[in-house]
Every structure is written in C-alpha cells, then in structure tokens.
Design a binder for these strands. Sequence first.
DNA 1: TCGGAAACATACTCTGTGTATGTTCGTATA
DNA 2: TATACGAACATACACAGAGTATGTTTCCGA
Lengths: 205, 205
Amino acid sequence: MSRVKSRREQYSEATRAALLEAAARRFAEHGFAGTALEDVAADIQATRGAVYHHFANKTALFRAVYEDVETTMLTRVKEAAAAHPDDVGAAADAALAMFLECCCEPVYGRLVWQEAPVALGWQEWKASEERYAFGMIEATVRTLIEVGKLPPLPVITFARTVFHLLGSAGIDLALTAEPDKARVKDEYLQVLRYMLGERPGPATP
Amino acid sequence: MSRVKSRREQYSEATRAALLEAAARRFAEHGFAGTALEDVAADIQATRGAVYHHFANKTALFRAVYEDVETTMLTRVKEAAAAHPDDVGAAADAALAMFLECCCEPVYGRLVWQEAPVALGWQEWKASEERYAFGMIEATVRTLIEVGKLPPLPVITFARTVFHLLGSAGIDLALTAEPDKARVKDEYLQVLRYMLGERPGPATP
DNA sequence: TCGGAAACATACTCTGTGTATGTTCGTATA
DNA sequence: TATACGAACATACACAGAGTATGTTTCCGA
C-alpha cells in the first residue's frame, strides 16, 4: 500500500502530529478565538511558518484537530458496542454510554460542542456530525426502532435530538465541580433513560 | 420614580438603543467574532468612540444585546402562558411552544445558542440562562411534576435537558430550508412530546 | 554532485481591539 | 446671561494576531 517513508517524510509527519496535539490542548483550554497560532507553534519549538506550511489557515488547523478527536471517539464507541455482538439493545446502551463518556472529557466536549460550531460554522459542523457522532447515533436509533425498543418516530430528527441530548449532558458534566459530578451524572442517566422511553414503575403505594 | 429626561439624556439613550439594535443584527448575521465594532458604529452614522463610551468592550456590548433578546423572549413566553390562567398543563404547553418559536427566530436562536456560549464563556452563559430561559423552564417543569404530569425526576437536570432540547430544535429549525421547515417542525414536536412523556398509542392491530 | 523541492523560518501587511486624548455642546450655577 | 464643567462623542495611537511573501536550510533523486 504506502511504501516506506523517507526520513524527511517522517520528520514532517512528526511535526504535523505535534502541532495537532498542541493545538488540541490550546483550543480545548482557551477556545478557538483565544488561541494564538504563535503559542501553538512555540509549544513544539517551532514558528508560525510551520503551522502555515501544514495547514491552510487557523480554521483548517482546527478542522484537522476536530476530525482527529471525532475519529478517536468513533473508534472507542464502536469498540464498546462490539462487546455485545449478540444483543443489539445492550450494544446500543454501551454505545450511548461510551459516547456520553467522551462528551464528558474536557477536550472532546469543549472542542466538539462549544468551539466547533463557531469555528467551522453551524452548517459545516452539522454536516460533519452527519459523518461522525450523529451518523453513529442515527444507526443506533434505527436499530432500536426496528427491534421495537423505540416507536416509529422520524429517525433523523429523533437521532439529532438524542445527539444534542447527550452532548449537552456531557458538556454540562464536564463543567460540573468534582464533588457534585457523580450525583449529576446519575441524574442525567435517569433523565436520559426517561426521555428515551423507559418509564419508572409507580412508587410503592 | 424617574424624573423627566433632559434632551441630552434622550439623545444618549437613543444612540445607545440604536447601537444595540445594529449590534444585534450584525452579531446575529456574522457572529460575535465576525463583527467589527467599526461596522456597528457605521450602521448608525457614528464611530467606535460612541461604542466604547456606552459599553466597556465588545463583550459588554454583546452581553447587553443578549440580555435584551432574553428579556423580550421572557415577556412573550409569559404572555403566552398567561392566556391559560386556569389550566397549568395548557399554560406549560403554550409556554414551551412559544419558547420554541423564539428559538426558531434567527436572531434569538443564533445569539443565544451559538454565539453566547463562546462570547460570554460557557460558565457565564449557563449562569445567565439560570435567570432567563432556563429559570422559566424549571418553573414549568416543577409545576408539571407537582401536578403529576411528569414523574418525580431531578428537576434541575431535567429542566436543563428540556432547555437544550428546545434550543437545539429551534436552531436546527432556524437553519432548515423553507420547503422542509414545516415537516421538520412537525417532526420535532412529535419527538419532543415523546421525550416529555407522551406515548403514542399502539398501531391498530 | 548538483538541481530542485519540501520543510520550515523571517519579515511584512493588514485588520481589529482597546486606550488615550481631543472636541463639541448641553446644562447647571454665579 | 456669561461661564465653567462634564457628558457624549470623535480622533489618534498602540498593540496583538492572522495571513502572505520571501528567504534559508536540508534532504533526496537523477
């Protein structure tokens, strides 16, 4: 497939990867507008020249970081689902839980849910999610409907709503102070389960 | 209460109001980062000096715009709810529907849901919503639980979720192309009703 | 071994924010 | 009614950061 890399290519890919890593940290910590490319470059002992060699502009750098974390997320979610090859319900549960887990992480949560919509524009962000998180959720929802675990609601809209549901829960959790985190997470799981159709049994009379 | 305004005060308030209006348009159309104060000032035949006289900085201007649209929204929602003084369920329905309506409007939707979290920072945005949309929803949810129309779920978390639910639906609707808008809106109402507890009857067997 | 191109660094331009200072004009006070 | 004062702006300047143009080094293939 891809032949052996020359030393130069290896160096180049290394700095590119280092730039992505540094940028991810900066963007996640200070936001898109709050990060100067100067600082990103300095983090890896380089100058902005290196950045503009590898990426067309600031937005392109962000886009690369964004697609990176999305790909990582997708892999983890697929792994989680693959642990239940015989039970679609359990697989869906695991997938959604893992996605929520990802959203809780400061880097993924902030990048994907806070910065991406303004850095890339809502339109592009929405289109991108089609290929990542949202696409995955849509498949899950479709399965759940086919299996009868969900009523035949409009798939796309329902999936998009679930997507936002998990995302907002995740980002809220990511910013919840440590002492409350466990309780809030439990509350969100209760609410999410309710919204996805589970009904609590009547209180013991 | 407030004594009669001098001519000077009237002029000042007029330009301040004009600045807010121009800024709202610019922010809603080009986003926070994409708006230059120069242009906002030019829109009302003034210079940036006027802006910086009335507002501490760009963020403060945005904050003022933001609080303005939130207040307008709250008024409209309260009016909608007040139309059903005898039926809390209907009042809650009307309130939520009106809120969704507001979220669909490009100015409110974009400012509150896209720009505010990054312009003000998620923390401040969350805190502000406590006093506006979210506070209102919380009251509604609390009522619905007391009346028994909702099970006793954790109020704060549930309200916050509903808040995001309506917001994401609204902003998505705001960006949906006209021919599809009616259908998508209908789909969202279906999904929202489902998530809020209504269960469709079984298909005729 | 040498020409060229990739991988950067350096230097410059331009836009936009924030600030410091100047100017006008209404208004209170003598 | 003359004047002093301060609010309401305008003008001018400093500075940061994005984007671009150009220079420099070093690897690699012919």
